[in-house]
Write a protein that binds this DNA or RNA. Structure first.
Lengths: 115, 115
DNA sequence: GTAACTACCTCGGAATCCGATATATACTCA
DNA sequence: TGAGTATATATCGGATTCCGAGGTAGTTAC
């Protein structure tokens, strides 16, 4: 189950791109990889992951290809595209700005002093 | 316009608590303070902020008190409660874990190597 | 007299979320 | 043989959340 919930979903596209950037992978594998890399802090259900994958493929940020295995169910392996790589860079920049903003506020860096 | 959108909303309760922890403030002021501290990277509309304030007050995490000014509209000033302080600590912990997880994935720290 | 700013609040359509469900193969253990 | 578990994909739709828009009102400044 894991889940730190509360946040997460909005970050999914970027996380998926980051995972398939380091290695082409199928949906199920991407889900597991996110759990592993986050030490189970992050976890997405199938009802969340597969639609996100579809959207990314439609947007041309990842490309899927079916692999029929001699043993086991067929899988659709996704690889990142050039469009996706550019988008991933954008995600990283947005995340950097966002997370530093949240940090600044949570740690109470004061910028005003007016009562 | 600011807004880095995409994320944000889920973090609002924690951000509000952090702001009123450093100084009791009214809704409008809280909104401005978040913008200032985030250098305009974060911005919440009133349709988002006021409901969030209500929910926090209902949960006993902040306490509001009306101040009628001799000049200008009345304002409802919120201060953090003990419950809110405890909750804020929790928000900070969750955020720390979450953001480090996202960082780990976005920067591609590999934990598996299986193809 | 009107524009802009401070300050509060609510409505409700739109968008998003994800648990539940369905299908299918393969392996293990009793 | 059957149950349970794991791999693997995919969709549905009710519930929840989101926030732009709209409304009230006092103040300040052309």
């Amino acid at each position: 189950m894991s889940k730190s919930a509360e946040q997460s979903r909005s970050q999914l596209p970027g996380l998926i791109l980051a995972v398939v950037e380091s290695q082409p992978l199928h949906g199920y594998g991407i889900a597991r990889e996110i759990e592993v890399r986050s030490a189970d802090a992050l976890s997405f259900g199938e009802g969340t992951l597969y639609p996100a994958l579809k959207a990314l493929e439609l947007a041309g940020e990842i490309a899927g290809e079916w692999y029929v295995q001699e043993s086991g169910p067929a899988k659709k392996v996704y690889r990142i595209t050039d469009v996706g790589r550019a988008q991933l860079a954008r995600h990283r920049a947005v995340w950097a700005e966002y997370s530093s903003s949240v940090n600044r506020i949570l740690t109470g860096t004061p910028q005003t002093q007016t009562a």
